[in-house]
Structures are given as structure tokens and as C-alpha cells.
């Protein structure tokens, strides 16, 4: 989408409702982050090292997230491998 189209499309919506949408997303995300267990960053580092033994990846190519679903949690691991 061109930059022009981007602003044109946004104009249809008033700026207060854009603000609300953006806030809902970022606030939900940040609440999630702060309720995550303290071991998560270390786990991410350890995983990064293990994977680097086999594939060269950067820090930002691995994402670890814990999602609470009722009475269990799901550990979601996302690794983007470099182009072959």
C-alpha cells in the first residue's frame, strides 16, 4: 500500500477511534509481558544458544511467549530461519 493510500484510508476513521484501537492492542500486549514468568528471558537466551549450534540466527529471530489458556499454559516458540 502506498503511503498516500495509507493516510487516505485512515482518514475515513476519526483519530480518536484510531487512538483507541492502538491503545487496546499495546495495553493488552504490555499486560501480557508483565505477567510473564521471570525465567522467560533466560529461557530465550538458552534456546538461542542451542539453536545457534546448528543454524546461525540472530536474537530477534527467536520469539518465546507463554499464553495462558484456562487451566494450562502454552509455550509458543517462533524461530525464523535465514533464507536458504
Amino acid at each position: 500500500m502506498s503511503l498516500f493510500a495509507f493516510f487516505r484510508d485512515r482518514k475515513k476513521q476519526n483519530s480518536a477511534s484510531i487512538a483507541k484501537e492502538r491503545l487496546q492492542i499495546i495495553v493488552a500486549h504490555e499486560r501480557g509481558l508483565h505477567s510473564q514468568p521471570d525465567y522467560l528471558p533466560q529461557l530465550q537466551k538458552d534456546l538461542l544458544e542451542v539453536i545457534r549450534k546448528y543454524v546461525p540466527i540472530e536474537q530477534d529471530q527467536i520469539q518465546v511467549e507463554l499464553e495462558n489458556q484456562g487451566n494450562c499454559s502454552i509455550l509458543e516458540l517462533n524461530i525464523t530461519l535465514p533464507d536458504r
Binding site: N14, A16, S17, A19, K20, L23, Q24, V27
Partner: peptide, 17 residues
């Protein structure tokens, strides 16, 4: 400004927080 859609309304902020 809330009426004009330029500022978040009370309900918006209440809903988010």
C-alpha cells in the same frame, strides 16, 4: 473535541483501563 472524534471519550478510557 470528543464529539468531533478528535479526543478519546470517557467510555474509551474506562474500557481500556
Amino acid at each position: 473535541r470528543v464529539t468531533k472524534g478528535e479526543m478519546l471519550g470517557v467510555e474509551d478510557v474506562e474500557e481500556i483501563l
